[in-house]
Design a protein around this nucleic acid. Structure first.
Lengths: 258, 258
DNA sequence: TTTAATAACCGTCAATCCTACACTAAATTC
DNA sequence: GAATTTAGTGTAGGATTGACGGTTATTAAA
């Protein structure tokens, strides 16, 4: 059995006339070649809510509709480089957390011509994102529960990314990728609660988070959101790297969460 | 940062003459098209050892060298279908555990022409595998610690698959996919110990395994491998499906295992 | 300057789970 | 029937988890 969601796509079948090469073949000449695109599922956290960065598609088909940011893979470019290029174009960012999610390949997923899409799952610090640049693409941040209808199979991609976020964040400290350099425990908790659409006991939460040894308490307090003020913490980046895989079972029984 | 292993490939750069279409474009006509292949990393368990099914490549380049079983994606075929087709061709099996692993895309990974490879991670019951068919491909099972040198980036694919097997089996009961319908607890333990290259206490192991409620004890015993004989168990397939995600943290602290 | 309001911060107890560890039971062979 | 081999079982101590309420720091209003 394939452990893979069902596709539920357009069923416009445009069969292009691409006859096989019937001359004696050298190399792989009789094989079909495909367009390959990358699409980025970009998560951000504004301190309150988890959000997704979407653009209004600038060309046909489906021009003007909401879509993930993507682009075709170029001739001498790996998928990773293509995804990095696309992300940079939209956000101005480099060196962000980026991970291959899934290769989508339904022959009819793009009605113009068969195109595979390699999706990349991306976590960015929303504060470092360059608003200016994204204006060119009519980009907007959408809260996860208010995602508009997207073109092609992009909604399915987003669903898969959300699932992956929950899965992975239960096992590895990736959510710090969404936070600014300094953050407070209450902020961190709001983030986790958003990802798991749940609430945690703050005493247990802080005990658990601090027991990882990943956080370094700062002397200053954040005083915007409460009278008393909450201490800032920074991520210990050295430990973050060494403990990345040792973070397993951070969220107990993720499947039980409502 | 990309959370991705480095590539370490051939560096034969054959740049083919494929000029862009300079006519006015309709659709995506100015974009580069690629060959796409699927490759299957096929795991089996013979009761003693974890093994990988490899073939001797039947065509150039690298004809005669050891390789994963693969094939080009056809015109109207999704990657999933292509992987299923390739697997069926080699093993005669259908409806086996198969999961997309990673899309490999280094522009120089195939020296003849740029080809992306979408890899699929596969677990089969080695007893149901059709030896006859595989003779045509000069296929052979190799113990995981005796994998020969493979073509292109196939060794890297195998490494990634081994890692994924360990990761996933710590969280989900996928290893049952490698076992025949009836198996004993000692057999199961040998399998887990093989995957984690480690040893477990059999009292703790059986307690934990049985506490999942996934196993149904049979009346018969397996009497080949011991005088006393060990009771057979069957997987409760209904519970397997419902509890697939609830199996998390099966292997405690997988990262600590030596 | 006192008082009220707000959110941060802290600690304990009970239940559960994990780990380490050793003997008995069943069947076969000599 | 004695010896051998592997299956099968239980317990105690330590660690982790989850449930739970009261105090402290600060600001704004009275």
């Amino acid at each position: 059995m394939f452990h893979r969601k069902k596709f539920c796509y357009f069923h416009i079948s445009i069969v292009l006339a691409t006859p096989y090469n019937t001359t004696f073949m050298t190399g792989y000449s009789h094989q079909k070649r495909f367009l390959v695109a990358v699409d980025c599922i970009i998560f951000g956290f504004d301190g309150q809510q988890l959000k997704l960065l979407l653009i209004q598609r600038g060309f046909e088909p489906e021009k003007g509709k909401w879509s993930l940011m993507g682009g075709f893979v170029e001739k001498e470019e790996s998928f990773e480089l293509a995804a990095g290029r696309v992300l940079h174009k939209l956000t101005g960012l480099e060196n962000v957390y980026m991970e291959q999610l899934y290769a989508f390949s339904d022959p009819n997923r793009d009605p113009i011509e068969r195109t595979a899409s390699i999706t990349y799952f991306t976590l960015i610090d929303i504060n470092q994102y360059k608003h200016q640049i994204s204006k060119d693409y009519h980009a907007e941040w959408f809260p996860l529960n208010k995602i508009p209808k997207l073109i092609f199979d992009h909604s399915e991609m987003v669903e898969m990314a959300k699932e992956k976020l929950r899965y992975k964040a239960a096992l590895h400290p990736i959510l710090f990728e969404l936070l600014p350099e300094k953050f407070t425990l209450p902020q961190l908790q709001v983030l986790y609660e958003g990802v798991y659409d749940s609430t945690f006991d703050k005493r247990n939460f802080s005990r658990k988070v601090l027991s990882t040894g990943l956080l370094v308490k700062q002397k200053e307090k954040e005083k915007e959101s409460s009278k008393r003020g909450a201490f800032y913490f920074k991520l210990d980046k050295r430990k973050y790297k060494t403990k990345f895989d040792a973070f397993l079972n951070f969220i107990p029984n993720p499947h039980k969460l409502k």
